[in-house]
């Protein structure tokens, strides 16, 4: 079977249509968020989840509803027929279907290198060697911060490290880890904000929806649109946890200062001998990371965290319905 025949098979059509459907969904969702003036990160995330969830289901559902959707007659009447573009040869030599497959393979490679391998390595290493940790309950600041926070308190551990690190693990053994270096620079209110943010992550990780979304994201590992959208969802998750932390502490400024302290400090210079490309890549990643942190800090200091989630529900239903109808006629 050659590549062209594969793209016309059920699996190939699934790949092609899920890509086109996710692209259309991403455009509509992005514009819908603006049209409905949605600022609440929880509602924004709910909108963005459509980009991951709908394309996984749309093709098999549409084919089940109308098995002749891939046939010539349906394609002729379709709003957009991807085969017209895939059959093209640009400048008489450059096959669009080859470019398309190349794009999918790059997305798959990025998923493998940047997401799956680090995740597997992290899981493997954390099982092999436990991080040296000491319970932080006896530390006065930590004990005070936990005391004033509402809800179920997770275990908090200290890691003997000068770097500014705060992280949490999820699952049945969920816990928060703070570096001793961080404890030295954060004020009590900033420490409380950091712990509250991590508590929010632990609470959110118990939601089965996010697990389902991650599984769907893995299924769509070749889809570049899903790759980008999943990162935006992860960024929105940070905003949601910021809002939850602020609702616990009632102190958005403390969380903004914590972010400045944790991420605003100088990073270690790249080790000598590293290639130019790797250094550029690291600089770009660092730059984009800083931009995101700046956005979060601005959001907290401008008190833009309060949105209007009520209006989002109607907009969400309309967006999901519009995208589903349009995508039905996109083959």
């Amino acid at each position: 079977m050659n590549l062209f025949d594969f793209l016309n098979s059920y699996a190939g059509m699934y790949l092609v249509q899920s890509f086109v459907h996710s692209l259309i969904t991403a455009i509509v969702v992005d514009r819908a968020i603006n049209a409905w003036r949605i600022v609440n990160p929880l509602v924004i995330q709910r909108f963005r989840l459509l980009v991951i969830l709908l394309p996984v289901l749309s093709f098999p559902l549409f084919q089940w509803m109308h098995p002749e959707r891939g046939a010539v007659d349906f394609r002729l009447r379709a709003l957009f027929d991807s085969a017209r573009w895939l059959n093209l040869e640009l400048f008489g030599a450059l096959s669009v279907h080859l470019l398309f497959v190349g794009l999918l393979l790059i997305a798959g490679l990025v998923f493998l290198v940047q997401e799956l391998i680090p995740l597997v390595r992290h899981t493997f290493l954390s099982k092999r060697s436990a991080v040296p940790r000491t319970p932080a309950d006896e530390h006065a600041h930590v004990a005070r911060a936990l005391e004033d926070l509402p809800g179920e308190k997770p275990a908090v551990y200290l890691m003997d490290d000068d770097a500014f690190t705060v992280l949490s693990t999820t699952g049945s053994d969920s816990a928060i880890f703070l570096s001793t270096g961080l404890l030295e620079v954060l004020s009590p209110s900033q420490l409380q904000a950091a712990i509250a943010h991590e508590m929010a992550h632990i609470q959110r990780s118990k939601r089965p929806l996010l697990v389902i979304v991650y599984l769907f994201r893995i299924l769509m590992f070749l889809n570049p649109v899903v790759l980008l959208e999943f990162r935006r969802i992860a960024q929105e998750e940070e905003n949601i946890c910021d809002d939850m932390a602020v609702s616990m502490t009632r102190n958005p400024r403390a969380l903004a200062d914590t972010l400045r302290n944790v991420y605003g400090t100088q990073r270690d210079p790249a080790p000598a001998g590293r290639g130019k490309l790797a250094a550029v890549n690291e600089a770009l990643e660092d730059y984009s990371h800083r931009l995101l942190i700046e956005k979060r800090i601005n959001r907290l200091t401008e008190a833009r965290s309060d949105g209007a989630p009520k209006r989002g529900r109607l907009g969400w239903v309309l967006t999901a319905a519009a995208v589903s109808v349009i995508n039905y006629f996109v083959v």
Binding site: I24, I27, V28, R31, A32, A35, W36, A78, L79, F80, D81, R84, W85, G315, L318, T319, A322, I326, V330
Partner: peptide, 16 residues
Amino acid sequence: FAAILLVLLAALKLLN
């Protein structure tokens, strides 16, 4: 939102 959908439909027709 309706205007966005109309623009999208026109763009899809053009791209087709």
